[in-house]
Nucleic acid binder design. Structure first.
Lengths: 204, 204
DNA sequence: ACACTTATGGAGTGGTCGCTCCATAAGTGG
DNA sequence: CCACTTATGGAGCGACCACTCCATAAGTGT
């Protein structure tokens, strides 16, 4: 059954992609609905609200798109066919490459888009916190797998190791914003991954 | 010579300290002048602008206060009487303890207060970027000193090591906001500092 | 041709934004 | 007591905030 009613004059998915970029670059509150209307193709306010409901629910859709695309750098961590160590290295390098990429704003949307929120936008805060927790959980899953597979010593402090990698990943967002080069970040990833080797069984 | 004119009815320094906390917690744009007036002791708009000039210059003073107090965690890095390795460990642990502290908002003001800015507030962006650069420069100074003192191998990629520690430090801000415990963060610092040992001369 | 559904442009909502003006208050030195 | 200086409360500025209303346009099925 085909849709009835007057057809929409813009591509809704394209608009969400553009909105994602704007929220990503400026953050939720710093980009106004008027600017969104303009950048999304010169929509009228009526069209905007008919299509997306509210600024908040547009953000929700943009955040979902982000997690489904750029946010999937943690995918290797959950892939049982990749060794935990290789998965972690891959994810860290991916994180650098995606966040330093030039086809979109720098940094991680989950870290940057909902940082400065006034009290009325608690819902947005919850959304980005949930997104950041996904990364943390994926890292924890990877570390657990490594210990269970005897690829990391049983003596290690799992939580500390998770926090180490997670903290580094989240710091990348700030670093790419500050202009730190992809090359330097990738080199620092290599040093960080040496830590993994030093925690392999029978090393200490 | 004593000041003339009607005396101010509030303590300007106290007010700046409170403003620092508010900017730190919510970010520059998310805290309004009306809220600042209220929290700074119920000032009228006239009093606010007479005392501070503008929202932007109040932020500037708050940022200076932050750098002079909480931001001085990098002090050990510049202290020639502390070994580079000890200085780095100290700074990392300090960073965790300060940012997870309970007498003020969580995280690092330089990372968190100027993240989501609309185009008109470029000046604020520059201020926080400058503050973040100070940390990076202090780390670089420490690493250089370590290499020159033969406390780190000459073969290391200095820039990569600087970026490693700097990225971790900046990630702490996000982690404390997400409720990661001081204990877990301190443990991850210990693992990170093991990296330093592995790069000491004659280790590879 | 007609009802039905959905999208659109334009005008306008109350509220908040950072900031200013002005008369008055409360201190100082002569 | 009187100038002089600075601070204060209150009223109000234009601009923007997210959002809504409504008449009309542009498709559908019958």
């Amino acid at each position: 059954m085909s849709r009835t009613g007057r057809p929409r004059e813009f591509d809704r998915d394209d608009a969400i992609r553009m909105a994602m970029h704007l929220f990503w670059e400026f953050g939720y509150e710093a980009i106004s609905v008027a600017q969104l209307q303009k950048e999304l193709g010169g929509l009228s306010a009526a069209s905007f609200y008919a299509a997306f409901g509210s600024k908040q629910s547009l953000f929700e859709e943009a955040m979902s798109l982000y997690m489904a695309t750029c946010g999937d750098i943690v995918a290797p961590l959950k892939d049982p066919d990749v060794s935990p160590r290789e998965a972690m290295g891959k994810t860290l390098r991916h994180a650098v490459e995606v966040q330093a990429g030039t086809s979109h704003p720098k940094g991680c949307m989950a870290v940057l888009a909902g940082t400065n929120l006034s009290a009325k936008n608690r819902e947005i805060l919850k959304m980005v916190e949930r997104a950041r927790a996904e990364t943390r959980d994926a890292i924890a899953h990877c570390i657990n797998r490594a210990v269970e597979n005897h690829e990391l010593s049983k003596k290690i402090d799992r939580e500390a190791l998770v926090v180490l990698f997670d903290t580094f990943i989240k710091g990348i967002a700030i670093q790419t914003r500050d202009g730190i080069s992809t090359k330097a970040l990738l080199s620092s990833v290599e040093i960080l991954m040496m830590t993994w080797e030093s925690l392999e069984p029978g090393r200490t």
